[in-house]
Design a protein around this nucleic acid. Structure first.
Lengths: 197, 197
DNA sequence: GGCGATAAGGTACGGTACGTATCGTATCTA
DNA sequence: TAGATACGATACGTACCGTACCTTATCGCC
């Protein structure tokens, strides 16, 4: 051994250091530059310690990102439908952030199909719940028709949000949240929640 | 030199061999397993030859894929709107294929923002044109209202298709083309092409 | 037909990261 | 206090990167 007399970290101290190191590396080098060796160096530990925890760098990145987000709703969702939707989508873009988008894109590029589905759901499941709440409130307030929106419509809205995250916000362009809500999402919801003809 | 007396390929023969090798490697090892060395080995050439043509493996994969697709419309689009939409989306899923989806996911994970936008458009621009044709015909046939669908609506439909490619078809699940067309796309088009209120 | 420019073909190199094996020992548990 | 655990550290063989270098087939031109 050289230099330091091998001080050892206990409890979650090591895990925390690893997660911080992963996030820092992602921020500085991006997902393609994320390596086991780099994380080990930055966290002041060694590769075997990382391999004991994560089978792949994708798993490492996912864990670090999930742990770093606390799932608080972006607003209380009492306003008009349109405002709630804008707040939900904007809040999600902010929460994911530029690093998150880049990491998301990198991860789905190198994991198996099942993990793609899992990660896709992971990013969106929370949002899907909030969206359901927004729609329920809007229906009770008479902003939408009495028929609940079909599941496919809800999933389509989530898909639009995901697209906005990955290919608009994530491609350096300004996301057009209000336009999409007004021109696409609200009309779609009105049309699919009208009372049966 | 060893063995072979260095027969040299002319015209597009070398380029063809490289593209075939790239597609084969993508099929066998997937995008994460695509390497300059592997392609060089398989194409019977050497790394410098590849580096003279492509700066990154992403560029290599994109070129091979683009060259391998001929852009013929999946049908003649004269039927009812619903059938045209189903044919368009199903045709696109078939055209892209499993290798294409995996490659697409891998590429967008490691290229810069501008290339993400470019590749996203590349996969979809053709489709967007066909979609416009379908909508024009449907409007003239009276299947849709007189107002042309807003650009954002058209883009949203493309986004739904992209989502289906990446996260449903590409996650090993059976794509639900008819359900999405009937429950989401057609109602959305009806609602946004109605004559002004 | 010979002659120079171009670029294919081939080899080799230093560098980085992978994934695993091994070892000593600090720390926790009983 | 004894044993189990797993951190910290090092080292190894392999794979691939990206580039430099050299030889020589092929093409365009005079």
């Amino acid at each position: 051994m050289t230099g330091t007399p091998a001080r050892r970290r206990r409890a979650g101290e090591l895990e925390s250091a690893i997660r911080v190191a992963v996030l820092d590396e992602l921020h500085e080098r991006g997902y393609p530059g994320l390596t086991f060796e780099g994380v080990a160096r930055r966290a002041g530990t060694s590769k075997p310690v990382l391999y004991r925890r994560y089978p792949t760098r994708a798993a490492m990145a996912i864990d670090a990102f999930v742990s770093s987000r606390v799932a608080t709703p972006p607003a209380d969702f009492a306003g008009p439908l349109r405002e709630d939707l804008v707040a939900l989508i904007s809040g999600m873009l902010m929460r994911v952030g530029a690093d998150g988008v880049a990491t998301f894109r990198g991860v789905i590029g190198e994991v198996d199909d099942a993990t793609v589905a899992r990660v896709g759901a992971l990013v969106m499941s929370q949002v899907e719940g909030w969206l359901g709440g927004i729609l329920d409130r809007a229906r009770e307030a008479g902003e939408l028709g009495p028929t609940p929106a079909p599941a496919r419509v809800v999933r389509a809205i989530v898909a639009l949000m995901r697209n906005e995250v990955l290919f608009v916000f994530g491609a350096g362009q300004a996301p057009d949240v209000e336009g999409i809500v007004d021109d696409v999402i609200v009309p779609l919801l009105r049309a699919t929640t009208a009372s049966p003809r």
